[in-house]
Nucleic acid binder design. Structure first.
Lengths: 197, 197
DNA sequence: GGAAAAGTATACAGGTCGGTGCAATGATGC
DNA sequence: GCATCATTGCACCGACCTGTATACTTTTCC
């Protein structure tokens, strides 16, 4: 009824779902493989058959988070601001506990390990997403502004992690609007597009 | 020759210096009390005579970092921007590894413990420092702008932790200048103060 | 039906962790 | 000098960690 490969990848998905929830909620170091196996409802031996070491599990956990943001059909300026709105919705989930990449780097004992590379790739991809929106807008220096957007996002993430107040996302959005406006983007009233070029 | 109390606090200082270096460089969870005792050159028993548990040591470690930034005699606008310059110098130290409070919260297994309260107090104090500078400048909404400054600082700290590029501090400073200017602060050429109010 | 694969439970190895007990040694204060 | 305190080394505890070994049962494929 079910092919071996299907069953295998399905089990891997179950394991990764548990690992994701537990690693993210309590930290990578704080969660042992026994806890994950018990949460999935499998034996530890089975878990090690699917992931030969905890490091592999951690890597798969972070790679699962490396998906780019879903692209929308909004015009680029609103697309950027909508990203901050999405941030606020994410913050409002009670399970929110910061950026898994930043957290992983923060609790890594060795500074330059493989997790750091994954985190850098993730951040660079997000920055590139901002940069492409900004290039589409025709701002003078999209790279510079993309870095500033990332500063606001990561600042909001860190603040949310510590303070636990989701309204910081709105503050970041406000700052982003000011920076966009200062760069020549008419973002505040996008539907009014007659005259103030 | 040396009073008991002096010797005691001196030993506590030695312990805290080692704990600070090791906790900050490798993370709180990754460093055991044995490692700290060996680094100080004392027995584990002596360490436990000065700090009855590892949690006390962690608390003392974070409280050591809770000092406010040294106030300078610069005018408030430059005082704020000088804070970003100080950030860049801090980033350039090879031992830099992010904000100890954010890192502590990121690697804490339980979300709402005592460390979080210390981290919140620290961040609020820094934010208040920005707010007082901005109030001195007479900007319309110093609280709002102080939050934005903190977003840039924490964003730069997180980015520096992951990417390891100290120039992000300059990007944060640039963004801060834009936000200050947009709020009515003439910050870019402070010495030219004739006419453009 | 029967072999091969994958799952199970249990136990264990070898290590580190935070924290304690204890006897002995050294320094300090009066 | 003597009592007191700090410190030491070392063994030890129980708990937890990653990872493995064994032996048994279930499922799947042909």
């Amino acid at each position: 009824m079910m092919l071996r490969a299907e069953a295998k990848s399905l089990m891997q998905e179950r394991i990764l779902r548990s690992a994701d929830r537990l690693f993210y909620a309590h930290g990578i170091q704080a969660i042992g493989v026994d806890t994950i196996a018990a949460d999935v409802g499998i034996s530890k031996r089975t878990l090690y058959n699917h992931f030969p070491s905890k490091a592999d599990l951690i890597r798969a956990y972070l790679e699962r988070w490396s998906q780019p943001p879903a692209s929308t059909e909004l015009p680029p300026a609103e697309r950027i601001l909508a990203e901050f709105d999405r941030l606020e919705r994410t913050f409002s989930q009670p399970s929110y506990r910061g950026c898994p990449f930043i957290n992983a780097v923060a609790e890594a004992a060795e500074p330059a390990d493989e997790l750091t590379r994954l985190a850098i790739d993730f951040k660079k991809a997000r920055r590139r997403w901002f940069a492409s929106c900004l290039a589409e807008l025709g701002v003078p220096d999209p790279e510079r502004l993309a870095t500033q957007m990332m500063l606001l996002v990561d600042g909001a993430v860190a603040t949310m992690l510590v303070q636990g107040d989701a309204s910081i996302a709105r503050a970041a959005r406000d700052a982003a609007e000011v920076l966009l406006t200062a760069a020549g983007v008419a973002a505040r009233r996008p539907r009014v597009s007659h005259g103030e070029a």
